[in-house]
Every structure is written in structure tokens, then in C-alpha cells.
Design a protein around this nucleic acid. Sequence first.
RNA 1: GGGCGGGUAGCUCAGCUGGCUAGAGCAUUCGCUUUACACGCGAAGGGUCCCGGGUUCGAAUCCCGGCCUGCCCACCA
Length: 1111
Amino acid sequence: MAAPTSSKHDNTAPAAASAAADPSAPTPSAGTDLPKQYRPAEHEARIWDRWSAAKAFHADPARVLSGEARPYCILIPPPNVTARLHLGHALNNSLQDILTRAHRMMGFETLWMPGTDHAGIATQAVVERRVMQEEGKRRTDFQRDEFIAKIQAFKDDYEAQIIDQLQKIGCSCDWERVRFTMDEQCARAVREAFFRLFKDGLIYRGKRLVNWDPVLQTAVADDECYEAEIDGSFYYLRYPLVRKNAAGSHAPVTWNELATAGYPGADQHPGEEPAWVTVATTRPETYLGDVAVAINPHDPRAKSLRGLFAELPLVGRVIPIIEDSYVVLPEAYARTDEERADPKAGMATGYLKVTPAHDPNDYEIGRRHAQTIEAAGHPVLVNIFAPDATVSEKHGWEDVGDASLFIGMSREDARKKVVAEFKALGLLEGTKPHKHSVKHSDRSKAVIEPYLSDQWYVRVTDERMAGQANRALVSDQRTSAGSGSQSAPTDNRLQFHPARYAKTYEQWHDGIRDWCISRQLWWGHRIPVWTKTITIDATNRQQLVNGGDLDFLDASGASLFAWSWCPGETETEESANRLVGVAVFRHVASGRTFIGDATPGGPPWYGLPELDGEYEVAVCVNNAPSLVEYLEEESGFTQDPDVLDTWFSSALWPLSTLGWPESTPLLRAFNPTSTLCTAREIITLWVSRMVMFNRYFLPANFEQTGDAANASTSTTDAGPPPFRDVFVHAVIQDGEGRKMSKSLGNGVDPLDIVESHGADALRYTLCNMTTQTQDVRMPVERDPATGKNTSPKFDMGRNFGNKLWNAARFALAILGSASNPGSAVTRETNLSLADRWMLSRLAGGVQQAEAALREYNFANYAQTLYDLLWRDFCDWYLEAVKPTARTDAAQQAVLAHALETILRLIHPVMPYVTEAIFERVRAIETAPIDGITLGRPTKDGLLTTAGWPKVAAAWHNPEAEAAFDRARALITAIREVRAQHNVPPKRMVTYHPAAGLSVTDAEAALIRTLANVDTISNSAPAGPSVTFTYNAAEHRLSNLADAVDASAERARLEKLIADRNKQIKTLEGRLANPGYAQKAPPAMVEETRTQLQQAIQERDAANEQLAGLGA
RNA sequence: GGGCGGGUAGCUCAGCUGGCUAGAGCAUUCGCUUUACACGCGAAGGGUCCCGGGUUCGAAUCCCGGCCUGCCCACCA
């Protein structure tokens, strides 16, 4: 494991021994030799080395499987190897580390699995850009292997940087288990998963419309696109109407005929023959691929057009008029206000050109009307573009006709030319300017072309996928899909925090579409499918049925490769386990196969005995190099050139990192994992898919048996979701609410903060910011000295760490000189009020911290620590015990236990400074305290593996807290008077309690120490004095100064009177309300009366004093 | 178009299963070289809780409407 100081990652090399790592090294006994400031740089690397040497973060599945320890596991969301980590990663990983460290201390066998993601398209694009800049070469100037090697080198570099960053931040991952989504273990899981899905009919190949990037010439996912507003136009194109006659020829249609058929407004076109329909489009060039014109069945014109066709100008294709309710009615025919309000209604003509090969909606319409369209004599899908988005007749367009003049043109040129041609033909009805947003590719910035292309899909619409993903939700987060009065089915096993994100997750599955998993890239997992086109006829059919020349035997004669020409067919368990290859046939000539690929819910069926003609055989191979060799070298098969979508391997992360498909101890011990920490944009892309895959690939009883080998995917009973909790944290923005990004220059490198403030400060500040909202803002400033971005917010974390350091320094100075530990402290021990109060606060603090962590309320956790350490321990407890701590053994025990409890509570968020302090604290010996268990260090004297503090509820002490609060309020009141009168801090004053009020000894001790009072006197002051009001009684201070400053006193009293008057008015108003006394709880009314009485008393007293001053 | 957030002190944020004089950190002002800490200590000032209605004895908190702002998803003839 590498120390954070090293920039190189090496997860196998033993850590260098350092002096500090030796637990037997002499430990300084007191804190007095410590510097006044905690300097992170002096400790972090050294402490990291100690953790490494002790293998403190290494998880042992055996302890879980033997029942010795309960498991706690977090899988890191693997960062992309495209760039160094930013502040968002620092937040994400700090939170994971807090959870990890807390659970490790609580005694769970804790695994935080680290790793990185190959990030397919993103990484390839970054490297392509870099190679272009540095060498002036394109990807295609290299061999595939050559270029992949370049990406690999880039990945190695950034992976090392990322791991270095994570380690310097203090992430307590199991660094001996670093995974990479493309390493051999993950690759094996990918092939296995692909194979099983393929075999089960959940992976299929089909021609589909994808977002095509014509520059990169690859399909890109929706999330790899962005929308940009462009100024375009609506073009209104006329298509002449024709009628087919019996001979198969066609003839123009006249307006007269339409009028006769009842077409409204047909008489508006005298002499304008032949009749036409007008379509509106923003993309006139796609008319070349039109296969129908659609009209809404409720359009009054529809009826009279039945049986008619339109003829595409130049192309000459005769296309049917079809009726589909998808078409928006034009304003004139809208039936309801809602329809009229549709913005499209204003633009629409009521006729929609249908271009299934180039528009996703038209694709769906084409599916619905495939029969009608094909009956008209042409395929449903007419693809008019080459992969570079130039007009081409070579990719699925045959009836070019007179449209050959467009061939070879770019989309943009073709658009102009089409418009010009329509105009020349008198068929351009008009144009209207139109602003609309257009999809662009993130990577190349090119306009996305919906493009017909061969792609691999996962049938996530299957109940076994999306259905089981939703079913995993806990019942109170499951809302949709409950049919009738039935609530939605649920397995009660997956919970989102905050709960609202369950809705995002659920709705995503409700509207999910099949997942396109192929990418035309080089960087990624190759699709494990080998294809070859063969002709099947009567001669070889029987051979194939018998296994034919594809039947492959291993050396022992056992069949390694079995046909499964019916994917989804149930095999026996035995044959399924032996299966290393599965083949699917696709009829090359049949266009219908591509569009209507399956009966709903079922896999495509190809009855082998009926096969006849040219087929593409696709063989999916599962981890069988010998079969690959056979296919490639003896049978002439070639591997699919595409790679898988990055998210395919990410979706397997909970499986692959733990060793699946092997039934490893790690998998059995830690899957399902405990918590997934992530950002919300990834709920659909990643969380959903991990759940689907984990549930699909692990057997239903996995949680009980922990046995992945018995996985049976033929059942609808699903395995466990891969985690119990999904915590979705806020996104960090800059001070203006913008995303942090390189291009905006508002990014902050976490290591810059580690350098300037220390890792603990970074972590604490981020933790403190993590509320339950969606976004948090981090104002960014450029440090003029270093030129690096930073934020003043991190000072808070640094200050907090420093406070802890100094509190410990002080406590150690006291405790280090103690000699007699004394006997155990119990509830019978005579403790000071401050001690009893502190123990009570500790009991409460532990409880609050645990609750905050349990609820993933990180800001509350940080705030609890802050208040406990700074407000309670430092401001009040340490100040209170200063006079007595050196001599009171029981108090020393409380002091030591308080410090150590707080240290342990803070350790998960500030691991370095707490560990550094612990090096000294652990040497302190005091009496034990009954009911406080700190747990002893278990590994090399490290805090990081030491126990989580337990403070018995018996130490919770409301009376002590109330008494302490009273004293504290009085002290604050005295301090206020002192400040008002500019009494020097060191000056000891005399306090005269209000008449009839007795101060307990315990309170008196606190007042003396904390308010610099030397005498508490029940007699009237002899010299000059001031009166102050506290708790509705008048108290006096004397000895403030030689003379009392009357003007300060007057100012103070005037303000007090004003405040009280305001308060009196409010309270009187409340009581004057007749409903209040009647309806509010009596105790509350009583309280209000008391408050009013007190306020009046205090005001009157102040008035009196003011009058006295005036004299 | 559907969904989800946010709008509270100059800034960043708590509080919002209704009821303490609406809080914290930073910033500001005043006073402190108090022997743990000036990355500190003590004190102070600072708020139409976005706007308008409603429910209620009582609203920052609940309901309705509006304005501003951010994110996710879908769609775009």
C-alpha cells in the first residue's frame, strides 16, 4: 500500500516500516511538548503508514462467515479514469469513509471496496483529443491494439493519481483489493453476465434507432447528449395525392373527388390540381425516407382520404395515408381546449410525414402500421443516410428514382436542396421560423442523427429486470404500479435516503425502455459474440440440427459447446453449467425481423427446422478461449467489433468486485452490501442497473445460503438487491450555484485543500455541509499566493481540528502529571456538578452522533461533534475544572474519559488528528468509570481499529444539566454586565445574589471560576455597584471598578426596557386573544402568564434603576 | 410536459410531525498577549423567515395561488 506521500500506487508492496508505526516506541506522557497548532503535514503521511503497516483496513470474510462479526460493506462508486478527482468525489468518498470508519469501530467486519471505472466513451474521447493535440493524429491512424495501449497508459496514470488522492484524503478502503472495471476479474463477470442474459433471451440484437454521432460514428446514450436551442424553420411541403388502380399503376386525385368524399374545404382549390396534403417538418431532407403520411383518426378529413396514397416528389414512392392518434390535430379541428393549447396545434397541418428510419416517434408509428406500409410495396425502414450522415442509397434505400441528385450531400446541403426542389415544383407551401432544441453529442458537439443501426440490447423492460428492481423497494417507498386497491408488490429490501429519491427510481423503471448496450468504440469490453453469415438449405439443415460442424468437443471428448437455437429454452441444470456457447440465427433478407423482433415478453424464436436462406449466426461465448479459437480459426467467425456500454460493467460492480461468478467467501460475506453512497444523477444509470443485475444473477435464497453457485435464473424469484440503503447526497456547486467544472475554472482540487488545510479539515467541512437538500454551495476563491482555488469554508474544519488538538494538549498536560488513579468512578462517587454535567452531555452526544449517522444526516453528526467538543467540553467543562483537575482523581477520570469519548466520536470524520492525539492519550492511566466502555485498541494501538465509545444511559442526568444551565445563564449575565462596564477580565468582582436567593455550593464554584467572581456576598454592597436582572430577580455586582460608568449602565438598561416592552406586548396580545385561553393547552397558557409576569418585573426593576441613575 | 429541490442575518446553511425572545459558522463591532488554543477567549449588533390568500387560539413551519432559482426525466411535425 502506498503512503499518501507517494504518487505511485502499488497495492501489493509492503508498507515501509516507520518509527511511528512501531507500537512499542516510547510514547510521550504529556501534552506539553506538543506544538500549539496542529500541522496536518507533520502527521498525515506518518499515520497513514501506521494504518497500512497494521493492515487496519483489510476485511476478512472468514470472520463474517464464521459468525464472529457482522458484515458492513460499501462499494465505492468507481471514479472515471478520465481525470483527477474533484470536490464532489471528495465529498462522496469522505461520507463513505465516515460510515466505514464508524462501523469498523463499532465492531463490524468492514469492507470498503475501492476501484475505478474505465468510462468507455469519456476516456477514449479524452485520449483522442490528447493524441490529436500532441501528435496531430486521429484514432483511425492507429491499429486498434496500438490505440488501446495508449488509452491503457493514460488510464494507468490517472488511476494512480486517483488512488493517491483517495488515500491522501484518508479513505480507509481495503487497498489490497483495488478493482478496475476492465481488469480480468471484472471482464470475467462481464462475459458471464452477457452470456447468461443472451442465453435467457434477455439480450437481443436488432436494428433500432439510436442517437448517432456522425463525427465519432458511434451510437451515444441519451445521457451523452445535450440539448441546444437552434433557430430553425418549419417547412410546409405538399405531397400530391394519388389513387392506386387495379393494374398496379396510380393516378392523381382531384379536389373535386375529395369534395365529393366529404373532405372539408376541398372546394377552396379551384384549378389547383392534383390535390395534395401538406406536411410540416423541421427536417425536409428526411422526406426521402418517408413511408407514410399520418392523420389523426378524429380529423374530419381522415375519412375522405381512406384508401388514398401520397406520392413523394422526385422519389416517386407511393406511400399510404394512415390514421394514428399520435398526430396532433391542427387548431382548426381541435376538439378540446387542451388540444387547442398544444403548442404543436398552432404549427400543425394535421398531416405528419412518417420517417421511421430517422425519427424515434415515426419509428413507433412505423411499427404500428408496418402491415399497411409494407402492403404499399416498400419496407418500413428506409435509411437514407450513410454513417457520416451524408445522403446515401447504399444503406437501406433502393427506390431512389429521380432523387439521385441528393446522393452524397451532407444533411445540411440536402435540406437546402430539398427545399429548393419543392419550391421549383410549386410544392413548397411556405416556411416559418421556429426555435427548437436539438440534441448534440457531448463529445463531438455534432448534431445527433437518429440513425438505424445494428445494436445489442438488454431487455430491461422484462419483469425480471425493471419489475424486480421496483419490487425491491421498501413498502413505504413503493408508490406506483399498485393495481386497483392492491398496494404495489415489494420485497422490502431497498431503501432510499432521503426517501424522495425512491420516486425517481420507481418512475424510471415504470417508463423504462430496452437498454442499448453496444458502443462503436475501441475502449471497453468487447462483446463476446462471434458472427458469420451462412446459407441454410435442405442439404445442411439436418447437419445443423444434429450439431453439425459447430459441435465442439474438448480433448476428453466432452461437448463444450451446445446449441441453443431457442434462447430462453430451459436447459437442465447440468447442461446449463456446461454450456459455453449459445447461437442465434438472424434471417438476413427479412426486414420484418428487425422491427417486430419478438412477441411481447418472449424471446425471439427461430425454429431451426424451418430455417431456409441466408442467416447471420451469432455465437455468444462464455469464457471459453478454446471455443473462440475454434470459431475464429477454423470456422471463419469474427468477433463483433463493438464494445459494451460502460454501465454494463458498472452494473456488475457489486458482483464482479466480490468475485462473482465464483462463489467466493468475499461474495458470500458481503453481498448484499450495506450502503451505496452516490449522487442523484446516477440513480437511473447505475443504481437501477446494479439492482436489476444483482437480483437477476444471484439466486432467490442467496441471502440465506450465500451460495452463488446455485444461481438459477429461470425463476422469477429474484435474488437480493446489492445494497440495503442508497444514500443520495447533495451536489456541490460554486458560490453562484453553478456546477464545478474545469471549463468554468471554478473547480477545487481536494489535494490543494489537503495541502492548505489538511485532510481532516476538508472532510469535516464537507461533512458539515451535507444536509438533506439537493445542492450545497461552496464559494470558491483563488488564493493569490498559490494561484489555486480554495474556499474560506474549509477554515472551519481546520479550526475545529485545531481546537481538538489544543483541548487534548491541555487535558494531557493535566493528566500527564497525575499520579494516583484512584478508585473506579461510579454513580455513588461524589462528583462535581461540572463532572456530572459533562458525563450527561457525553451520554447524549454519543446517542446523537449515532442517530445522525444512522439517518445519514451528516451535517447533524458534524454539528453534534462541534457542540460537544467546542461548546460543552472546551468552553464550559475545561474552564470549569481548571482549578481542581490537577488534584481531583475522580475528575481526572471524567476528563480523560470525556476526551477519549469525543476523540472516538470524531475519528470517523477526522481520522488523522484524532489518531495523532490518540498516540498520547492511550498512555494515560486514570480510574475507570463505571458504565463507560471505550474498548481497547485491537491492532497496534491504533484508534482506527479501536472501539466505538459506549456511555451508559445511567450517566444521563437531567438534574445536573438543569443546574448547570442555570449556573451558565447566571454566568453569562454576569459576563454581560462586566463587558458593558469594561471591567478588565482579570479583575475579580463581588456578586450579590438577589435577596432570598441562595446559591448552591456547586453553582458558586462555577460562578467563581467562570465569571471571575472572588466573593459571593449576601449582604448589600459597600461601595459602588450595578444591578442586573436575571431570572426576574435583581442581583448586584460590586467591585467592578473604582467608579461605575453611568452612561454604559443607562444604555444597557434602556435596551433591556425596550426588549421587555416588546416582549410584554407580544405576550399580552397572546393572552388577550379569547381563543388562546380556551383552546391552547393550559400549561402553555400558564407559562405565558409567568413569562409576562417576569418580563414586567424585569422591566419595572430596570426602570427603577434607570431612575436611580438619573439622580 | 412530468417529477424533485431551494428561496430564513451581508455570505453559507440549520430550524419546518405548528407554540421558547427564529439559531449556527463565517463576516462586522467592542473588549482581551486570561499559562490549551488569536486557527483563540468574552460580549454585541444584524432577520417583512420570497409575495398574496387560507386553515388555526397561534404559521418560518400546514393548505391554495403566484414569483424567482436549480436539478432530473420525457418530448420537440
